[in-house]
């Protein structure tokens, strides 16, 4: 069974909510990313999203833009990140999702990307600028087997479209909780509960909620409404601050553990 599906099956059986962590692969280096992934798993992350850096991340806020920039400068490439996943798989079975934009994987070759990433041990892919409409219209974007295609739903997505996306969703649905780019926010968006309920009425696929969640209170509130909570920029920010320091992994665990505990307390 695909690791993402297995994890949500297990979570549901245990009556627990999931915690999804996002990091930029290759920031500050691929070697440290490997350590970060293992530390996040140890802190209780159920699924880890690895950002595959792109030069023009137009759906990302400044924190993730700068992280992608650092990763590219440090030499991260699609091929090296696939190698990294292969390496992680020798020591960990944590579900891994590649989170990126279309151009890097289009250039790599869409079909080849799916095949290589799945063979390396990736479980899903989320392409921010590939709406399902285009995925079916472009022959070369026919998705290969192996990777779950994680779809986005936004607050602006109309009801009929939610039904359409919900029906063909795989792995989990990523509900973008606010209009805007990635990045921590001081307050939660409104209407999350209603939208998630609407998605859940249209689809059996688990719903993870992200964008703007950065502290345990927010995580707990969102966990009570959805199947999983995604925290990204707040973790990336921490990596930015302590990236090459020997304290990084300790700081990371200290930050992530309370978020996980909050999600698991629901």
């Amino acid at each position: 069974m695909n690791r993402i599906d297995q994890r949500f099956t297990d979570l549901r059986a245990a009556g627990k909510k999931g915690f999804v962590a996002y990091i930029a692969a290759g920031d500050p280096s691929l070697e440290i990313t490997r350590e970060i992934v293992l530390a996040l798993e140890e802190a209780g992350a159920d699924i880890i999203e690895l950002g595959l850096p792109f030069s023009d991340p137009l759906a990302d806020g400044i924190v993730n833009q700068m992280a992608a920039d650092r990763a590219l400068k440090a030499g991260a490439t699609t091929a090296k990140i696939i190698e990294l996943i292969k390496d992680i798989r020798t020591v960990s079975q944590v579900p891994l999702v590649l989170f990126t934009y279309l151009n890097p994987i289009y250039t790599y070759g869409f079909e080849r990307f799916h095949a290589d990433a799945a063979a390396a041990g990736a479980d899903g892919v989320l392409v921010l600028d590939l709406p399902p409409d285009e995925a079916v219209l472009n022959k070369e974007l026919m998705e290969g087997a192996g990777l779950r295609n994680i779809r986005l739903i936004a607050p602006t997505t109309p009801k009929e479209r939610i039904a359409l996306i919900g029906q063909e969703a795989q792995g989990f649905i990523y509900y973008v909780s606010r209009e805007g780019v990635t990045g921590a926010q001081t307050s939660l968006a409104t209407g999350i509960g209603e939208q998630v309920a609407l998605i859940q009425s249209a689809s059996q696929t688990p719903v993870a909620v992200g964008f703007g969640i950065s502290n345990p209170d927010q995580a707990r509130t969102v966990a009570s409404m959805a199947d999983a909570v995604v925290v990204g920029s707040a973790i990336v920010k921490l990596i930015e601050q302590h990236g090459t320091s020997p304290d990084l992994l300790v700081k990371l665990r200290d930050f992530v553990k309370p978020l996980v505990d909050a999600v698991k307390s629901v």
């Binding site: 921010l128 709406p131 602006t156 479209r161």
Partner: peptide
């Protein structure tokens, strides 16, 4: 080829 938020 845009993020879902802009499709509508």
């Amino acid at each position: 080829f845009v993020p879902e938020t802009l499709m509508a």
